[in-house]
């Protein structure tokens, strides 16, 4: 992996794309970040973990921009957070153990169903 290390410019370019996607769609930055990080020579699990390290500060910035125009109410998001944290606790503990392929199949299947439904309605 060390042989394949990418430079700062590569990371900066990827970061710019990830930030734009994440800001435009309010999510999905990680989906762009994971393959970019893998390409930089990180392992699959490092890529997934590091994608969060990148999208966390970027989401904070986007959230501030969204908040300026009051595009959403904080009160709609806050009740969801404890449940999300419970899920994150589980995810944080199992990432080392889980099968990537299984995870991707379920997630990919859900996205195809959801995307299809959104386009049709």
């Amino acid at each position: 992996m060390e042989k394949k290390k990418k430079g700062k410019l590569y990371y900066a370019l990827c970061g710019a794309v990830i930030g734009t996607v994440n800001g435009l769609f309010g999510s999905g930055g990680g989906v762009a970040a994971v393959p970019a990080l893998k390409h930089a020579g990180l392992t699959v699990k490092e890529s997934h973990a590091s994608s969060l390290a990148v999208t966390l500060p970027l989401s904070a910035v986007s959230m501030i921009v969204y908040s300026i125009g009051q595009d959403f109410k904080w009160s709609d998001a806050l009740p969801l957070i404890p449940f999300g944290l419970a899920g994150a606790l589980i995810g944080g503990l199992v990432l080392k153990k889980i099968s990537n392929v299984w995870l991707k199949r379920i997630f990919g299947g859900l996205l195809i169903l959801a995307g299809g439904r959104m386009l049709l309605t």
Partner: peptide, 13 residues
């Protein structure tokens, strides 16, 4: 990536 990403995040948002 984070520093360049911040600029992208503002533009995308």
């Amino acid at each position: 990536a984070i520093l360049a990403g911040i600029i992208g995040a503002v533009i995308g948002s």
